[in-house]
Design a binder for these strands. Sequence first.
RNA 1: GUGGACGUAGCUCCGUUGGUAGAGCCCUGGAUUGUGAUUCCAGUCGUUGUGGGUUCGAGCCCCAUCGUCCACCCCA
Length: 428
Amino acid sequence: MGKSIQAIRGMHDILPEQSALWLFLESRVMDVLNRYGYREIRTPIAEMTELFRRSIGDVTDIVEKEMYTFDDRNGESLTLRPEGTAGCVRAGIQHGLFHNQVQRLWYRGQMFRHERPQKGRYRQFFQMGAEAFGLEGPDIDLEIIAITRRFWTELGIDGLELQLNTLGTADEREAYRRQLVDYFAAHPDQLDEDSRRRLQSNPLRILDSKNPQMRELIEAAPTLMAHLGAESGAHFEQLCAGLDALGIPYRINPRLVRGLDYYARTVFEWVSDRLGAQGTVCAGGRYDGLVEQLGGRATPAVGFAMGIERLILLLEQIDDATRLAPLDAYLVTVGEAAATVGARLAEELRDALPQFSLLRHCGGGSFKSQFKRADRSGARFALILGEDELARGVIGLKPLRDDADQQEVALEGLVAHLQRVLLPTGAE
RNA sequence: GUGGACGUAGCUCCGUUGGUAGAGCCCUGGAUUGUGAUUCCAGUCGUUGUGGGUUCGAGCCCCAUCGUCCACCCCA
């Protein structure tokens, strides 16, 4: 026990009991993305370290202390991706996807950040996200948010709040940043320790401080909204009007600041109050400067990413129904002759009835123990093939989920019978 | 990186002022020589996370370490 190897801290196995829920979630999300015309892009799990330094930002926590970085055998510095957008953009530039084209892409996969594990926060975590390239108007921002809203309705998740903000263009944001630094620097005695540090690293984040003693100072701080240029202001207003028109409720949160450097203008988060401290389930925004910053031609872009583990936590809370597709039948046999015929019969049934799920008992054991396993498998029916049935060319069909009587069916007509009896209710 | 709580059977947990480990579930077999889920009977379940220390004696006390959880930071 003590010497056995365990999974790496913060990296978890998804066991079969849970994987059904994962499959449900992933397939619904993929379905929605397809219906909006988005296509999947798969990029490597590791990239050149420089890619993340240039996209996420050198002074962000992610780049400074959370990346899984290592030297390749040839001495190049590689990094396990901490998020999905950078790789997407790199691949798009490399393959010319943004050359006078609109691209609607989605991705999924494991991301890696070396943080202290916590509820809803892991060192390896799974994200699904989408990016739209080549469109600069608020209509595509609206589409992106509409997609995410549809996820929640399709998945049956409610109680999420959409928080919305705008950061202006990179220039507007930088001008505001300087003003904010001046403002806070003028009141050094009122800043707490965290805020002093943020003054250097990420001054916008001071606005989001949870320290009540900072409240007064923050309330009086200059606001970004007041410093928006006419275009950025109009962009934001049009997005809000679009959300109203679609009946998507939102709350404007002027303190909403995304952690990654590349965001500009629209930023949004979907937040739950049921996940403890890690309430953000999906977050995104516009990053018009990133493609150019990474060496492509200037291309506007907007996207989002969502944390699948956090959504799974929500689904587990609000939905106790199992997502396991029930097994249709469990085949029990007695004697070697029946086992041989049973093996062949099982394959024939799988040929003839592709939607029919059948588990054939393996490993021998008494008749009784085989039935126990049939019951525990959750199968709706037991198929029984013993010496007696074999001799008469029939098979027993016993319902396991209700009190109906066991029937005998001729082997000749079994496929037709199963089709009639099993599949109608099994089909979804 | 900082702070707090917790590590006992595969799982959920009891373990009384320190006297060399228990229950339920699960699993296996039987009562029912070819019929599950209910019932009854029997059986297997452990280097008490790991390594030290205190003690005649440690699951219990102390230290370290690893891990889990929660919060801060940060973020999906």
